[in-house]
Design a protein around this nucleic acid. Sequence first.
DNA 1: ACTTAAATGATATGGGCGTACCATGACGGG
DNA 2: CCCGTCATGGTACGCCCATATCATTTAAGT
Lengths: 202, 202
Amino acid sequence: MPRLVDHEVRRRQITDAARRVIVRGGLDAATFQAVAAEAGMSVRLVQYYFGTKKEFLLGTLDSVVHAMAARFTVELEGLGAEPEPRVALRTIGRALLPLDDIRRDEAKVLAAYQAARLSGSQSVPAETLDPAALLVRTAAEHIRRVRDDGPDTRAATELDAELFTVLVAGLSQSVLSGFHSTERAAELLDHTVDRVLGSGGG
Amino acid sequence: MPRLVDHEVRRRQITDAARRVIVRGGLDAATFQAVAAEAGMSVRLVQYYFGTKKEFLLGTLDSVVHAMAARFTVELEGLGAEPEPRVALRTIGRALLPLDDIRRDEAKVLAAYQAARLSGSQSVPAETLDPAALLVRTAAEHIRRVRDDGPDTRAATELDAELFTVLVAGLSQSVLSGFHSTERAAELLDHTVDRVLGSGGG
DNA sequence: ACTTAAATGATATGGGCGTACCATGACGGG
DNA sequence: CCCGTCATGGTACGCCCATATCATTTAAGT
């Protein structure tokens, strides 16, 4: 057998380069040539490891989604078994907001794919929405712990969890677009958490 | 002078076609050829009326922004001089949410441009954010009318106005992406209005 | 050391794009 | 009536892209 290379490592090198290219110039800029140049390899190699362009874009999307999911999970487990709901909601909100360069870049890439998905291109799967659904479930779980768990409040809890999720997503977009600063976004997140859980207990 | 044509009419025909194309296939699909075919004219004509591609895309963006601003203004003036704040917030929120096909298409086009703006393309101006800023001011104005107008509540009012705006924008994205139905979005909007103004008075 | 398949490079091909250029039809003013 | 100019069509050029094909290097197993 000839020179053996860890395919996962190569693929990672390529998707990392692709993410940088997408952050700089959007999905359109993510051409084979640009990514190959960014990764310091030949165009042929990118094709060799990903085949068609669609699979390549899918692989890059996967790398971002998994990175965000991993951070989300880490933050969540760092909270321990029975975290204060107020702290929990703030923490998981902040985990998904683009408050530093790393998260900002990931959010940018994700936004690029979501925009592509809006525009009819079936090549981007609905997988992009999974983080949102997970966020709704997690938020609902923590909100529930601070309320009467009666059956009539269940609808209200679900509604608040969805509102929380929509707001986090909206804040993310707002920060990315430059409408809100990261500091202001954090303030708004905290305020929302207080609103949802009630300013007093929690 | 030869056959005279109303340039505004022609430009409108073209931007309308462009909007349809963008709704179907995103900004990338808005090529001269595709738009010309959609409008039933030759490629040359599109260039003739818009010159370069950048100006053409800018013109199409303008048409959408103006349409949304016009609807927003109409709804706002339809409320009369001193509308109930609760009604006012719901109305202006609904005016901007993609609750029917027309608003959905406009929101889709706007989202496409916002995504392009995120991706470094300087050709798309920050003008896209103007509706958000206007929404913040208008929302703050109505929220203020329902609260003590003391100087210490001003910061809270501004904060709630921004939250309201972020939520409307987030809901718009959520509906476009298929995460929320239009009905659910309307529910969430109403719930948010109640939250901001207090469920009781207003 | 020789084989063999994996890993990489170089280059060709066909298509779509924006843009520039040339040609021509239409029509109102002289 | 006819001329100059607006309006429009057709087309060619150059670029970049995704993809395919051919060629070459590399090193593990025998």
